[in-house]
Design a binder for these strands. Structure first.
Ligand SMILES: NC(=O)c1ccc[n+]([C@@H]2O[C@H](COP(=O)([O-])OP(=O)(O)OC[C@H]3O[C@@H](n4cnc5c(N)ncnc54)[C@H](O)[C@@H]3O)[C@@H](O)[C@H]2O)c1
Ligand SMILES: NC(=O)c1ccc[n+]([C@@H]2O[C@H](COP(=O)([O-])OP(=O)(O)OC[C@H]3O[C@@H](n4cnc5c(N)ncnc54)[C@H](O)[C@@H]3O)[C@@H](O)[C@H]2O)c1
Lengths: 208, 208
DNA sequence: CACAGCTTGTGAAAACCTTCACAATACTAG
DNA sequence: CTAGTATTGTGAAGGTTTTCACAAGCTGTG
């Protein structure tokens, strides 16, 4: 099933899933594209078009079953089984991410933490021990880790990325403000808060 | 000047600025759209089109002056003077953000920190004191704060948002995974790492 | 069972964004 | 000053995404 679908459409699917989970918690059993759209800040037509790429999940005259559509979206987004994640860089942002419970709730399990600082290596974080980044390849393949979160300084990140892809990591969430070079078959998503702030100030400046 | 320009075009401008700063540090004085594109992961035509919306910054046969184009981009993005930012929520992600030096380097100054936890209020963080969030409106107008970073739990965030907009905040970077309701004239950018991870797992699942 | 009332799924149209291609123009060398 | 080379700025073309609008089909009622 190699459908062409845009990055923003995928992000909307993820948003629909969050909305469906809220609806489920609130006890709703069914939802129309109209309602789903209103709660996800889009339009009913957009919702239906986004879903139609992957199949037909609703019933005419009735809408979608919250639970069923949720299951379908989890399938589409690849969330049917948990993902095993390595956190590389046990610094400020790394520790915030490690303690964040929102990842595990969605099936992202941080199963190993790495750093290069001798003062940090060997320390315990919860049930985990901070590993020496030199052991990245061993641990990644032992624990069958598929995703890495890179929270290391910008000078170190390309080197760490190279190690991670050699170790077999296929997906990366990168916090360092630099474009990574990666081999074929490795996917990178960048988180860049400065860019977010600048798109904010652009909008603010346009106002005057 | 009400030009229509897409969110992704603005994000590219921000990226070009980062690239120009790297080029400047490396001692380059001039750059062509081709070079700028290669280092910013886009195409030369895209670079020129993006810039052309705002004016004509290059010289034919020569390219762009790194410093001049940088200044132009800073103007476009609204970065000609520093922005005064409030950080609301002195928790895990809040403290990582507070200590991050990358914001100040781009002219985003965190000039006040707020929390609601009596155990945190009054504590010193660097040169700042953590204020009671109840004093938000006073401090925001006293210090002429324009932007707020919201790093509070999801249950609290809409209330904090309401206070912030009443206090006169015009732009918000929101870390809580919920769509905020805001009055006209207030701009919100959401940071949602779960969505980033899910767009990653979508890409990974498509591979098989 | 027939009918009224909704809501989906989807082609077609519209809007939006990116790429192409080239005339205009600047700089350099001779 | 001219010729040659490089690179911009921009209409037009091509491609993608969103919106529109409606036939098809489900549900519930009488
Ligand atoms: N702190 C923030 O709020 C923030 C915001 C946006 C972006 N970032 C980016 O995130 C990254 C991390 O930022 P931070 O503030 O957490 O920095 P930090 O200095 O607090 O933490 C970085 C950690 O990485 C470790 N490290 C260094 N080299 C390493 C290597 N080769 N292998 C493994 N570990 C290594 C360090 O020992 C340290 O523990 C940086 O690239 C930064 O630009 C941070
Ligand atoms: N930690 C992460 O890595 C991470 C990642 C993604 C998203 N988030 C989101 O960021 C937000 C903060 O997460 P965190 O992990 O830092 O949580 P946290 O519990 O560590 O910190 C939240 C802080 O907000 C304060 N607070 C609560 N109510 C408040 C109010 N009304 N006014 C002011 N302060 C208030 C708390 O006292 C606490 O200090 C959450 O919405 C979370 O979903 C966090």
């Amino acid at each position: 099933m190699s459908k062409k679908i845009s990055e923003s459409a995928v992000r909307r699917l993820s948003l629909y899933l969050r909305t469906l989970e809220e609806l489920d918690r609130a006890g709703h059993e069914a939802v129309s594209s109209e309602q789903l759209a209103a709660r996800s800040a889009t339009t009913a037509a957009q919702v239906r078009k986004d879903l139609s790429v992957f199949g037909s999940f609703g019933k005419r005259g009735f809408g979608y079953t919250v639970e069923e559509l949720g299951r379908a979206l989890r399938g589409i987004l690849g969330l049917t089984q948990p993902w095993r994640v390595a956190l590389i860089g046990a610094g400020r942002i790394g520790s915030a991410l490690f303690e964040y419970t929102g990842f595990a709730r969605r099936g992202f399990q941080i199963v190993a933490v790495f750093d290069s600082d001798p003062a940090k290596i060997g320390r315990k974080w919860g049930d985990s021990i901070i590993h020496d980044v030199a052991k990245l390849e061993r641990v990644v393949s032992d624990k069958d880790i598929q995703i890495a979160i890179l929270a290391v300084p910008v000078e170190a990140v390309q080197g760490v990325m190279d190690q991670a892809s050699r170790a077999g990591v296929r997906g990366v969430l990168n916090f360092a403000p630099v474009r990574l070079k990666v081999p074929e078959g490795v996917t990178v998503k960048d988180v860049n808060l400065v860019i977010d702030l600048e798109s904010l100030t652009f909008a603010l400046s346009q106002g005057f």
